[in-house]
Computed example of a mutant assay.
Amino acid sequence: MRFRAKISDAGCLAHFSRAVATVAKLAKACALRLTAERLVFVAGARGAAGGARLWCEVRQGNVFDEFQMEGAAAEKNEIYLEVTPENLSRALKTAQNAKAVKIKLTNKHCPCLTVAVELPSLSSTSRVVTHDIPVGIIPRKLWNDFSEPSVPDFDVSIYLPALKTMKSVVERMKNLSNSIVIEANLNGEMNLKIETDLVCVTTHFKDLGNPPWGSQKSSQERDLETMAEARIDIKRLLQLLAGQQVNPTKALCNIASKRIVHFILLHEDVSLQYFIPALV
């Protein structure tokens, strides 16, 4: 079982660091799934994280200059590791001005992801800062626990408003309630609602647009004005909005009424999916 990768481009390094930092904000522990084409951070696969699930995928082709891996099982060339994403994020933060960063699976008293940061130097000799991050090896019999979550049949798919705006709204609302209702329709309208015995507050967003792949089937079965809604934990939503650093070029959510809200953030070679189950 071997893994070795290298990033030399400053932009790619910053992009990867932001993706890891986002994962670290959303999960204290996760699985890191390594394949020949991608790295995937998986959290909440076995009911952790308060029911929320995370799937963050980094396609390695345009990010890493070198990427070599050899899995433990010949029939399935993959490696599954238990990692603390905050430790990896901290190591990458020391690499902001690095000439190159190498990441390698090593065994130093225990399995580790060794991050070697090559820093610029005034002399001809490079300075290298090394971080050894302990990891756990996930056995083959548990790999199915970390497969990609299936997306439920949703009632509405809608593009999100500017995430900074949405974050600002939710931050104000969290002082009023522990839960928030997200509702949207196939006419590009979305509402964020707080409903308590004392107060009802609603923020309306219009003309957001609906992804065509999400609305083709549903639009034939549903009235465009009909709202799909789900009540979710407001802290989970704010955790996503406050923690994301990938600066997505596309952000959308799928709502399965009274069941789940599925968020998707896309930016170049990184995609992040976050599933928040509806509260009863």
Rank of each mutant, 00 (worst) to 15 (best):
L252Q: 14
D197L: 07
R231E: 14
V199S: 11
A162I: 04
N77T: 01
A100Y: 00
I182Q: 02
I180G: 04
V101N: 02
N210H: 07
E82T: 06
S89F: 04
L192F: 00
K99F: 05
W143D: 11
I133N: 08
F67M: 04
T94Q: 06
A36N: 11
V128T: 13
V128Y: 02
E57V: 15
N62A: 14
L13P: 12
A98C: 06
K108C: 01
S219Y: 01
D155A: 07
S121K: 01
R172T: 11
Q239Y: 00
L13S: 11
L224N: 12
L198V: 05
L192G: 00
D207R: 10
G136Y: 14
V40G: 08
P134E: 05
H262E: 14
A19S: 08
C200W: 00
N97V: 04
A184C: 03
T22M: 03
L26D: 09
P111K: 02
P211T: 05
E70A: 10
R18A: 12
I138Q: 13
D233L: 12
V128K: 01
D132T: 01
P212N: 06
L54S: 11
V117C: 09
F16P: 01
Q245N: 07
R90Y: 03
H204G: 00
I133W: 09
T106Y: 03
R222L: 13
T94E: 00
C56Q: 08
A29T: 15
I133C: 12
K25V: 05
A100S: 12
R4D: 05
T196F: 08
Q239K: 15
P161S: 10
